[in-house]
Amino acid sequence: MKTFENVDVKSVKEAVGLLQKFAGEKKNAAVVGGGSEYLQLMKVRVATPDYIVNLKTIPGLNYIKEDAGGFRIGALTTLAELEEHKGVQEKLLFLSQAAGEAASPQIRNAGTVAGNLCQRPFCWYFRSASHVCLRKGGEICYSVAGDNRYHAIIGGGPSYIVHPSDLAPALVALDAKIKIAGPAGEKTIPLEKFFVTPQVNARRENILGPADIVTEIQVPAPKTGSKGFYYKARERQAWDHAIVSVATVVQSGSGAVRDARVVLGGVAPIPWRVPKAEEFLRGKAIDDAAAQKAAEIALDGARPMKDNVYKIDLAKNLVRQALVASV
């Protein structure tokens, strides 16, 4: 790794102030939580910061609080702590499972929830220092002419990365909100609005500015009669990123769907919510045919590249299975 300065901060305010100062001085700075993702980028010199602002020394940012409104999860909560939390397991088992599906035990012990949502793509061109791709300020997305078996089939262009987080689709399906602290103060926005497509910004996956920090995730209490699932397809059983995943939350009553969320992972540059499939399901009794139809609708706009056509059928099948399981 290139030489840099690690700064331990004691408060969110101090972190934001430092980041603002570094940005003003045109210094290259980044925040780290567990460091489990960012250090890998530093080692291959895709990230070469002058300063890293270590958030782990901020007291009181690691918590899961439960009340009638739902759960509030502090930014520094680890994936393992989220997975193991009794209240989460009881009320939102599939969220605990999504956390448990991410990476490996060692990374779940170190990696934080905020870091998971803010992690950079695992695209092999992005992570190769010898490819100055669109995401790193270059001219082209190498996946277009290159090996694109793991790349986006939907919502891509001009960059075709897929969002690597397992938590993000599950949290978006739960209508979670994200709290962000920045120079202008704090704001809380729907997590869905946190992520941006490459059409909006080809270099970033989210709206965070250079001095913004994620401080909390808020998950509303599940509605009565609702069931959630997270299904992840991967190439092997031990740690691996999703090649396709799906998170569904279906609220049923009197034999019909009242409300539904269908969110795909591993197929698009952001967690890909499909409102058209959700609308189709509303008021229907889910049987095989309805689940199949919803799956078709969910993948309607897919435009695969030469090596990733397989993702379409895989995604349809996962959507169908999750919906059938929901009744």
């Binding site: 690690n6 460091g35 489990s36 250090l39 035990p105 060692q106 990374i107 012990n109 170190a110």
Partner: peptide, 12 residues
């Protein structure tokens, strides 16, 4: 807790 020591900075 078990962690990867290659992915932790000593200064932390």
């Amino acid at each position: 807790r078990n962690m990867y020591s290659c992915s932790q900075l000593a200064v932390w």
